[in-house]
Write a protein that binds this DNA or RNA. Sequence first.
DNA 1: CACGATTCGATCGTGTACGATCAATTCGTG
DNA 2: CACGAATTGATCGTACACGATCGAATCGTG
Lengths: 155, 155
Amino acid sequence: MSDVNIADAEANPLLLERQVCFALAVANRSVLKIYRRLLEPLGLTHPQYLVMLALWEVSPRAVKDIGHVLQLDSATLSPLLKRLESSGLVVRQRRGDDERNVDIALTDDGAALRERALTIPPAVVDALGVDLEVLQELHGVLTRVNEAAVRAGAT
Amino acid sequence: MSDVNIADAEANPLLLERQVCFALAVANRSVLKIYRRLLEPLGLTHPQYLVMLALWEVSPRAVKDIGHVLQLDSATLSPLLKRLESSGLVVRQRRGDDERNVDIALTDDGAALRERALTIPPAVVDALGVDLEVLQELHGVLTRVNEAAVRAGAT
DNA sequence: CACGATTCGATCGTGTACGATCAATTCGTG
DNA sequence: CACGAATTGATCGTACACGATCGAATCGTG
């Protein structure tokens, strides 16, 4: 990752951009690798973990709502939610007032899993070995990029 | 993304971490979405684009080397490289001195594609609508997280 | 030379991602 | 009431991502 340095990047925006897309993709994979190890005992993959996080905040939650928060579409969510259902962590039920909506609700097992999941975040922070300050900085920049990307993709 | 704010995060490290893993995953997907549109005319997916970037820097390059730079293993690279080969952008050839190594080399078409690819980076920066300064900041933080993650994953 | 350890790449199975498309339902308007 | 538009979730096909494993080739040592 050091074949192009920041000085080059300042002189040539194209190189900086390239490094950012490299860095983002590699960072995502690297972080996922850490999560994989930690989540395996819980029987969850990382996207499944994100869905559970969303449900631990609001339990009966529409598929569309989950997809909106996680920026996932139904083509990805449908099979994922089926796996969570067959694991006994959630149930799917059509809502009475509008049969088009499907609500996802935690089962008792799904709600109980939250206790074990509480150990994940500090383990990740520990494994990364970076200061919380750095994570805050990362969060701030990612959020800005995120909003810009959503704006760009909303068309 | 605003159901938990920074103030909460400062009081509770777990929430901050959660937001970061949310933000990283969403940002990665959002940025990929932008690339998808731009790369489609070139007939490249984003991982294929990363491999081509690596090859445009060093042309005859071992599979292992590409995998090291992009943090991808052969299970991902092998089919990907086959697609690039069937697209006529690269050729695979076993190296004489060690038959276990496979060198990937650009074809004339592959090398020529670089010209068209030069339009991609500024288009991404433009689509994101963020300052180069922000991208630099992002790059710096990602690099630090990256190194930490690699260290953590190196066991 | 022979043999075990290592390296390299390919392959298999599972699980996301996402564009495109489809069926069912609801809503707005005439 | 009826009909077209919009919404919602499901399904299909393609393409990563990665753990596990395999087969071939090389290397180190005796």
